[in-house]
Design a protein around this nucleic acid. Structure first.
Lengths: 200, 200
DNA sequence: ACATTAATGGCACTCGTGGTCACAAGCGCC
DNA sequence: GGCGCTTGTGACCACGAGTGCCATTAATGT
């Protein structure tokens, strides 16, 4: 993206970093809530000008999502890594599950991040735009494997439904973290199968 | 809600109405786009103070949705009207399909409304909050029929997946209106079944 | 007429967002 | 060491959504 990354060390180096901003922001969000935390406050906490924040994140809503574009690239790779002789639904399912596997020790911050995103109305709303990109990764994969266009009905349906299952799983996880997300996604999928298949 | 409805006719009567505001707003949205249309402009078009708009709609984003709360009540009734001896998935599916049946002549404005909602980023984002209420209607129904809590995994999954199918159908409908939404929802459902069931 | 009730709309204010512009801090080059 | 280039920084400014406050207006009921 167009963020201050300073790869080759040319020009003035940045005073702060995404990590630093996110840490400060999450600290304030936890303390006062998302809406009540102004950008001025975050800027002050980091020790930079308010205007500078916009060079690192496009908007206040983007801060909790971090660098999601990189995460998406990882997801795409995960799907591509699935064996092509696997049934399509199984490949997608495994990709989604793998995407949501996190090391145990990384979970406390991840959980806090997801809780914030999934329970703050402003962020819930903003998230659609991110989910859209996520769904497109799936739609592209399905399209490639079925020979359809990514905009055809089935790729879109699979993207939408996969997201539906993942979000259901996250909801449950936030309510009770004792079961890991991948397991919950699995259960959601099983539930859906029973629901659709079972005549009762 | 807390809107000026003037039921018993006491006190000053409203100068305008939801319908009038929506018409004016859609006219301006079509002409200048959603983002470029300010509330001042809408207020002027209606011939009313800007402050008054907020008495009819909570936010600019809420205008395109109209009085969705009433629509939701209708949806709830549609689900409840499904025969209880129908398999659960069939009852839900029929309820969703019925909810999306519109008289032919009402379609041009409805289509415009949906196009606006589904293609304007700000509105896409805002819509999640509305979708949430919609999903809850389904979750409640599923919970009632299965004896589960509305917050349990299955009711939530069914709500999420039903929304997923409906949104896929609307996407397709906006791209090509020749096939009615209910038919597209049906196709999405069939596609999902094949995808999940078919080993290929 | 007068009290009551409810909707209106002006005013002022906060805050997110975005544009412009001058400046600062490193880099490579001469 | 000075020069120009690049890029982060932040001050200043403008716009628009959203909100609290409150006087005003227009009906009803007595």
């Amino acid at each position: 993206m167009d963020r201050p990354v300073t790869v080759g060390a040319r020009g003035r180096p940045g005073v702060t970093s995404h990590g630093e901003i996110e840490q400060a922001a999450f600290r304030l969000f936890a303390e006062h809530g998302f809406a009540a935390t102004t950008l001025d406050a975050i800027a002050a906490e980091v020790g930079v000008g308010r205007r500078t924040l916009f060079r690192y994140y496009r908007s206040k809503n983007d801060i909790p999502w971090g660098r999601f574009d990189r995460t998406l690239a990882g997801f795409r790779a995960l799907l591509d890594a699935q064996p092509s002789d696997l049934p399509l639904h199984e490949a997608v399912h495994r990709g989604v599950v793998a995407f949501n596997e996190f090391p145990e020790d990384a979970q406390p911050p991840h959980r806090e991040r997801m809780r914030l995103i999934l329970t703050t109305p402003e962020l819930q709303a903003h998230s659609v735009l991110r989910y859209q990109e996520w769904r497109e990764v799936i739609a592209d994969y399905v399209a490639r494997r079925t020979g359809a266009a990514p905009t055809d009905l089935l790729p879109r349906v699979v993207g939408q439904v996969s997201l539906a299952l993942a979000l259901s799983a996250y909801d449950a996880w936030l309510a009770d973290a004792s079961t890991p997300v991948p397991v919950l996604i699995d259960r959601a999928m099983t539930g859906l199968r029973d629901y659709l298949g079972g005549g009762g």
